[in-house]
């Protein structure tokens, strides 16, 4: 088909005739997509492959749980009878102190990391959402996404040469005449390394929450007499709360189950739960105890998530209640 004015940029070339023919043939083969197949069958057909794929993991998790509630017959290297003994070894039996220390360390450091990560993520997310400069926004996003995507080992490596004796920290302390120091093997080192992993994730999860806050609300608060920090506490923070809770849950779960950072930055001195799971599985070869430890770790993560979510719900209900009472008071 000849176009009267081919200089017009709106005139797009027709698709190649062969392509159109192929489409027509494909259309006829598929009966125009109106194959007589029950909708339920079609939905099941779409879902089934993915469900089977994830089923592998579900099966594995079920096996973990199954092993964890059996005792281990070390002589025969096989499953003993149903028993809570693995959990007892980890949590309450005599000598469980070793594992309890590890669990408590993991939970405490994870809480500290989560808290700091949330505080640090707020300005980052705000910058990415609110900046008018596209370049700044892309830069912020990139600096969050690259550490998130480059993997645990590369992150840990970076901190190793930052905090190590031969690294920047050692060099700086040496130059200042404090001797060649290191933060490797300290809780502070693990905390810093974890922060770099978690802050970007927390910031990315916070993005939708920050975006939902209409900048007009802050301006309104200012005209109503709120200084900036009061506006932050009374307007931004409550509106961000759901995002902060989701970010907190993910941040805690990720820190709680870290492997590479505690192993490399802790110098093997301060193992986390995940390091101990590996150790029990591979060094001790006790999959029963290892499974129990994995189940305990999973339980702590899920429980914390529930506590976070419940806490948010209670806070909201309490606040709504206060406001309703005040409103009722003035109606009297």
């Amino acid at each position: 088909m000849a176009m009267p004015d081919s200089a017009d940029p709106a005139v797009v070339a027709d698709p190649p005739a062969l392509f159109v023919r192929l489409l027509g043939i494909a259309d006829r083969v598929f009966g125009g997509g109106q194959i007589a197949m029950p909708a339920a069958l079609r939905i099941a057909g779409g879902l089934l492959p993915a469900i089977i794929m994830i089923g592998v993991l579900a099966w594995g998790l079920a096996l973990l749980f199954w092993y964890s509630i059996h005792s281990y017959d070390a002589f025969a290297d096989q499953s003993g009878p149903l028993s809570p003994i693995e959990y007892a070894t980890l949590l309450w039996a005599k000598g469980a102190g070793f594992y309890r220390t590890i669990l408590i360390r993991t939970v405490l450091l994870s809480l500290l990391t989560t808290l700091a990560a949330l505080v640090l993520a707020i300005p980052v997310a705000t910058l990415i959402i609110r900046t008018r400069s596209n370049l700044l926004r892309i830069t912020g996003l990139t600096l969050c996404l690259v550490p998130f995507l480059m993997g645990d080992i590369v992150r840990a490596f970076g901190w190793l040469i930052l905090l190590g004796r031969e690294g920047l920290y050692g060099w700086l302390s040496q130059s200042l005449g404090l001797g060649q120091r290191t933060l490797i093997g300290s809780a502070l080192g693990i905390w810093l390394g974890s922060l770099q992993t978690i802050v970007p994730v927390a910031a990315l999860i916070l993005l939708p929450a920050v975006r939902r806050i209409d900048p007009d609300l802050e301006q309104a608060a200012a005209t109503l007499g709120a200084a900036r920090w009061r506006c932050f506490v009374l307007v931004n923070l409550p509106l961000m709360a759901p995002g902060l809770v989701s970010a907190g849950i993910v941040a805690f779960a990720l820190t709680m189950t870290q492997y590479a950072i505690p192993d490399i930055l802790g110098g093997g001195l301060l193992p986390f739960a995940a390091n101990t799971i590996q150790n029990v599985f591979f060094t001790e070869g006790n999959i029963y105890l290892g499974s129990a430890l994995a189940v305990v770790t999973l339980a702590v993560v899920l429980l914390t998530a529930m506590v976070f979510a419940l806490g948010l719900g209670l806070l909201r209900r309490w606040r709504a209640g206060v406001q309703r009472r005040q409103a009722v008071e003035i109606a009297l």
């Binding site: 200012a222 109503l224 409550p238």
Partner: peptide, 25 residues
């Protein structure tokens, strides 16, 4: 003066009502 010390009332085009507070709040 900063906005919050001007003691001026303003109604925004978007109204900017705080969604987390009741009418009373």
């Amino acid at each position: 003066l900063p906005t919050h010390r001007r003691n001026i009332g303003m109604v925004f085009q978007s109204l900017a009502l705080f969604p987390h507070l009741s009418v009373f709040g």
